[in-house]
Design a protein around this nucleic acid. Structure first.
Lengths: 152, 152
DNA sequence: CCGTATCCTTTCGGATACTG
DNA sequence: CAGTATCCGAAAGGATACGG
């Protein structure tokens, strides 16, 4: 992970975390605050899907790769490493040939997945309203989505 | 918004949305599914902060810009337009000079904010555990965070 | 005051090739 | 099988300048 810049400020200097002004103010602004980091993690392209799959059962690398389908092994590796680093995923290497590596969710990982479900539920409950809103907005602002011969 | 590619597939062809295989499978994979779109929205750099501020009270553009501090007016505009399109934010233009534009959260916007709060609460509850996990991971994988003269 | 347009840097993620 | 390394294109987002 040469691009990743893993050698960032670590160890949490025990003072840079956000206080109570977190709640309504800049709790989202920078990487100062933990909320942003978790948000970035669950919102990146593959993390949540990995978590969802592992919440069902322990899986091997290639299993995950097969099931996720669009993912490159690079991104799957990166994603799993981040989740492991954050303590959401446990990685177990069996010293056999060919190598076998199991991934499973930690209790914290399961807890995160459960929490995120509320958002999924919310989205499912509101997706129609959102779709309507978008259609109305796009019509009112005159976005061309269909070639004009369909209306002419 | 020339970069935005707003002329995407809209109108939901009433079949491309994810079904029940959504829950554990590819509900996260592509933009097919609404969950990913909402996730992208709340996880982008500024949306959630805007929502949090507007949940307190109606604000004008410049007010928001002043309070958010790091945001460029380009990104604030883009963010507000997206939120308006999705039906989270209501935009009111007063035809006066100089112009005055008010932004306020819709009921759906408030509802979204409330839902996201559970994630915030979760993060606050687990940030210590996450920090510990990261420290342990970084030590075990031997990431150089301090120049070696400190240990030598 | 409230934007839009243009340019530019940074970051994310895919493709591919190679290793233990 | 389970990665790692390198390269590259696409997209997000910041800086700046200009317009109604």
């Amino acid at each position: 992970m040469a691009e990743d810049g893993t050698s960032k400020s670590l160890g949490t200097p025990a003072g840079t975390v956000c206080d109570d002004d977190c709640s309504a103010f800049q709790w989202d602004a920078r990487e100062d605050c933990e909320v942003r980091q978790i948000l970035d993690r669950i919102a990146d392209k593959w993390s949540l899907l990995v978590i969802a799959l592992l919440d069902d059962r322990t899986m091997r690398f290639t299993e995950l790769k097969r099931m996720i389908d669009g993912v490159s092994q690079r991104m799957l590796t990166v994603t799993l490493r981040q989740l492991e680093r954050d303590g959401m995923v446990r990685r177990t290497v069996y010293p056999v040939v060919p190598p076998r590596v199991d991934y499973e969710l930690t209790p914290m990982g399961r807890s995160l997945h459960a929490t995120v479900q509320s958002l999924v539920v919310w989205t499912e409950a509101h997706q129609d309203e959102i779709a309507v809103s978008r259609e109305r907005y796009d019509r009112s602002t005159g976005v061309e989505v269909v070639p004009s011969e369909l209306v002419g």
